[in-house]
């Protein structure tokens, strides 16, 4: 990957390990490598799609970017500056990175009006003049397609789609540069999803935002992303621009993910895979994907873990047999 100095968000060898189990006596029974050495860059104005199944570590990754989970190893750089969990840069981080949550029902405080939800963070970050607070709230509601009078209402008075708009407004109120989108439409009614997807893409253009989007919905990822990273067992197994990932996937796992999506037109699909994500307490040796991989050979089972190999044009794959298995 080219070393762009102006990467908005940069993860360097980020790892988060959790000790698990352990009874009353004695130490932990094992360590889960939820995130294990992630290098990632988010450039200005870009949407990076992060794809993976449950347990692949994508949520833990998001938490550590937001400063809610201290990394075991590695660094998070925002705007070129390394951040840690210290109280001082928590406020600065809040003005740089914000998040839109998956479930529009549990992500809004049922006891607070929209105005309170938007006003408190403004005051907390030094916007105290009444007129300015009013202007900012009106402006942001306009951006997400809500009317000024909506500010006086409580969350239960809104539909799921409108609630998600409020969640987006809350994420934007501090004018951050980066938004983490955690499955932003998967909890919404199917007929509402297009509204929110279109809104997010418009906001990205008009406000010059950068998105890191976590999703398992490959259709949404293909539609919205500029670049895509595929995660498996805490590591990135393939990354590249959206077109190469979707039209020329090279890692067997990426191929399997794409093949697993039911095609409504009944077109021929690629090979499916079997089995489930291995126990993270006892990960397989060598390539983490080999127990499920249709292409696995002896070489794949042997340690160490394969490296992320650059195939050119920003397309990297973590697979020993990638050259053999030419697309």
């Amino acid at each position: 990957m080219s070393e762009a100095p102006n990467a908005l968000l940069k993860l360097e060898d980020l790892a988060v390990h959790f000790p698990v189990g352990g009874g009353l006596l004695g130490g932990p029974r094992g360590v889960v490598h939820a995130v294990d050495g992630i290098d990632l860059e988010l450039k200005h104005g870009e949407c990076l799609g992060l794809v993976g199944e449950s347990g692949c570590g994508k949520s833990t990754l998001a938490l550590s970017i937001l400063g809610l989970q201290a990394p075991t190893r590695g660094r998070v750089l925002l705007d070129g500056k390394a951040v840690d969990g210290a109280a001082g840069d928590r406020m600065a981080r809040a003005r740089t990175v914000q998040m839109v949550f998956q479930d529009p029902f549990s992500s809004l405080n049922p006891r607070q009006t929209v105005r309170r939800t938007l006003e408190t963070p403004l005051r907390l970050h030094g916007v105290k003049a009444k007129s300015e607070v009013e202007d900012r709230i009106a402006e942001i509601l306009g951006h997400v397609g809500l009317r000024p009078e909506h500010a006086e209402r409580y969350p239960h008075e809104f539909s799921g789609g409108q609630r998600q708009r409020i969640g987006i407004a809350r994420a934007l109120i501090l004018k951050p540069k980066i938004i983490l989108l955690d499955e932003p439409v998967s909890a919404l009614d199917v007929s509402i999803r297009a509204q929110i997807i279109n809104l997010l893409l418009e906001l990205k253009e008009t406000l010059g935002l950068s998105y890191l989007m976590i999703s398992h919905d490959l259709g949404v990822v293909e539609h919205m992303s500029d670049r895509v990273a595929v995660m498996y067992l805490g590591r990135i197994v393939e990354t590249g621009d959206w077109k190469s990932i979707f039209t020329n996937p090279r890692h067997p796992y990426t191929k399997a993910l794409i093949a697993a999506i039911p095609d409504p037109f009944g077109r021929a699909q690629g090979a499916k895979i079997f089995g489930e994500i291995p126990n993270p307490l006892d990960p397989p040796t060598g390539c983490g994907f080999h127990p499920r991989c249709p292409e696995a050979r002896d070489i794949c089972r042997r340690p160490p873990i394969p490296d992320l190999e650059d195939l050119g044009q920003g397309h990297s794959v973590r697979c020993r047999r990638v050259r053999e298995l030419a697309a």
Binding site: S191, I192, A194, G219, H223
Partner: peptide, 28 residues
């Protein structure tokens, strides 16, 4: 019709480029 047009179907962008999704107005 609206539902099918509103879905970001896998492969659609590769075939036709990114089109703005057709929205269904209103709520359920």
């Amino acid at each position: 019709n609206g539902l099918i047009a509103s879905l970001p179907l896998l492969g659609a962008r590769a075939r036709h480029g990114r089109q703005r999704l057709k929205e269904i107005a209103g709520v359920v």
